[in-house]
Design a protein around this nucleic acid. Structure first.
Length: 278
DNA sequence: GGCTTTGTTTTATA
DNA sequence: GTATAAAACAAAGC
C-alpha cells in the first residue's frame, strides 16, 4: 500500500544509492511485470529519480527512463552484495526483476524488484514520452508542492462525491491512499462520507492543513509499514505506530475513547470516529 | 477454495 | 456528453 510518503521515501533512498550507478545487466524473471525493451537500460547510467503521485520515474543517460508503480506489494531494493554467478538461483520467491550494478565504489550491487501480488509494473520508455503515459498524463496536483489551500477549496467545490473518495482520486490530488485519507479526515474532524462541496471554508482549511501535516510527518519517519512496505534499503518505516484511525476498528478514539468504526465507501474500508467526525 | 486485499482501469448508469 | 458509481482486474495468502 505504498502511498505518497512511502514512495517518496523509496525515491530518496534511490537518489542516495542508485543514482550514479551503471546498470551492467538486467534479468527479467517475470516478463509481464517489465514491459519495453530491457536492452535500452543495459550499459546506461542512472541520472535521476522523480516521483509523481505514487509513481516513480528513473531517468537514464541515454534518453530512456524506467517508469515504476509498486501498487500494493512492490518493493525496489538496493543491495550491495558479493557478485554471485547465476543470480536467480539465490533470489527470494517474489523477485521479478534484477538489475546488476557497478556503483563506482568497486563493490558490486543489485537493484531488485520484488512483488508478492505482482500488481506493480516497470515500463521502459523514452524519457520524453513519460508524460504521455496514461497514468502520468492526468495525475492531479501534488499535495506538498502544487496544492494550495485555495486550489484545494476549488477542487472540493467542483464535486459532490464523498470527500474521502475525492481525496483518493489520483486524478484530482495525487498520492493519497486509504491510510492518509482516513487519518487526515480524522484530524480535521470530518465525516468521510460528506459530499466534498458541503465542506465549509473552515473545514476545508482544517483538512488541507491535516493533509500537509500528516504526509510530512510520515515522510519524516520513513512512511508506514503496516504491510510489507520497506524502503530502498529494505528498512521499515514507523508511521504505522502513529495511525490515528486507520486499521483501528474497535480501538478507542484517541480523543473521546469511543470505538473507531469501519464502513465501506466506494468499496474501500474506511475508518473513523462516529463522535469526533461530523 | 472462497474471500480479502487496493490502486487503477474499464464499464455501466444516472 | 459528463460525472459518478460499480465492477473488473492483477495474484497470493489465509
Amino acid at each position: 500500500m505504498p502511498e505518497l510518503p512511502e514512495v517518496e521515501t523509496i525515491k530518496r533512498g534511490l537518489e542516495k544509492h542508485f543514482v550514479g550507478c551503471v546498470i551492467s545487466d538486467a534479468e527479467v524473471l517475470s516478463p509481464k511485470i517489465l514491459t519495453g525493451d530491457v536492452g535500452n537500460v543495459i550499459g546506461t547510467t542512472v541520472v535521476a529519480v522523480r516521483r509523481f503521485g505514487k509513481g516513480l520515474v528513473i531517468d537514464l543517460n541515454n534518453g530512456y527512463s524506467m517508469a515504476v508503480h509498486v501498487k500494493m506489494t512492490g518493493q525496489l531494493i538496493f543491495k550491495r552484495v558479493s557478485r554471485v554467478s547465476g543470480v536467480s538461483s539465490v533470489l527470494p520467491k517474489h523477485t521479478h526483476v534484477v538489475f546488476e550494478l557497478r556503483d563506482g565504489t568497486g563493490e558490486d550491487a543489485y537493484l531488485y524488484y520484488n512483488d508478492i501480488r505482482r500488481f506493480g509494473w516497470i515500463k521502459i520508455v523514452k524519457t520524453e514520452d513519460v508524460g504521455q503515459m496514461p497514468f502520468f498524463k492526468s495525475l492531479g496536483l501534488e499535495p506538498l508542492k502544487d496544492l494550495t489551500q485555495k486550489k484545494f477549496e476549488d477542487i472540493l467545490k467542483l464535486h459532490k462525491t464523498p470527500i474521502k473518495t475525492l481525496l483518493m482520486d489520483q486524478y484530482k490530488i495525487a498520492g493519497i491512499g486509504n491510510i492518509y485519507a482516513c487519518d487526515a479526515l480524522f484530524q480535521a474532524g470530518i465525516y468521510p462520507v460528506r459530499s466534498s462541496l458541503s465542506l465549509s471554508r473552515q473545514e476545508a482549511q482544517r483538512l488541507f492543513i491535516a493533509i500537509e501535516e500528516i504526509l510530512s510527518k510520515s515522510i519524516a519517519i520513513g512512511g508506514a509499514s503496516a504491510n510489507n512496505y520497506v524502503n530502498a534499503l529494505g528498512e521499515r518505516g514507523a508511521y504505522q505506530e502513529h495511525f490515528l484511525v486507520y486499521k483501528k476498528e474497535g480501538k478507542a478514539c484517541r480523543n473521546c475513547n469511543s470505538p473507531i468504526l469501519r464502513i465501506k465507501t466506494a468499496g474501500r474500508s474506511t475508518f473513523f470516529c462516529g463522535i469526533c467526525q461530523v
